[in-house]
Amino acid sequence: MSRIALDQVSFGYGAAPVLREISARVDEPQLIAIIGPNGAGKSTLIRTVAGLLHPTSGTCSLEGKPLGQLDRRAISRRVAHVPQQVTAPIPFTVEEVVLTGRTPHSHGLFESAEDLRAVDHAIALTHIEAFRHRPFHNLSGGEQQRVLLAAAIAQDAPIFLLDEPGAHLDPENQTELWNLLAQLRDQGRVMLIVTHHLNLAAERADRVWVLQQGRLVADASPNEAMHPERLQPVFRVPFHRHAAADGRIYLTYG
């Protein structure tokens, strides 16, 4: 049974199509990088898989069940979606933000011991203990992204949908982030990651989805997908592919 099955999924706002007849399957734990130019539909695609947007045609299924047959709580137990940014005018602490990840598993006013263990684990894994009790909205963009990732880890879903999780991170934190994402994949999770870091995608992803104007134009291994002749028409800039001394490929453009 596929973890994720997209069957001719289209979505649009009014008459303007954003996703066009996307079909793809994910059958095993994998780290999949979704790349494409701005406006290609990357964020819309993962929001559709998260059940936050309803396809105008086609079906999206999680673990064999069409999204339409699952209620919000059931979907949230299967997928943890992390948007690019979350703003709250109310000064919640970092720990309180991470606790929100346990919502699909909890009932009543109080968290269970298991909820608290999951939160502690997520905070330790993302190295945010130092600002556990600080207001979330006082943190830098990069720190906030780590907190949101911790909330997703606490959510304990088998599928992660991350929208540019490294957008505000420095090289050290980028490396740590991708190590953590790989670790989560190795624990049996499917990781769909929207990213503009093409070289990190080339190096770390198991698979790359390339989106162009709402269409999935490539679903291949990084080695196959990261070719100038594939990327040039999508991003409309000249690409050059290089091989480092250790054999890793990297791209330059412009």
Binding site: R47, L52, A74, S76, V86, Q155
Partner: peptide
């Protein structure tokens, strides 16, 4: 969006 992603209707 965040609330819906955490299972809230």
């Amino acid at each position: 969006e965040w609330a819906a992603g955490r299972g809230i209707d």
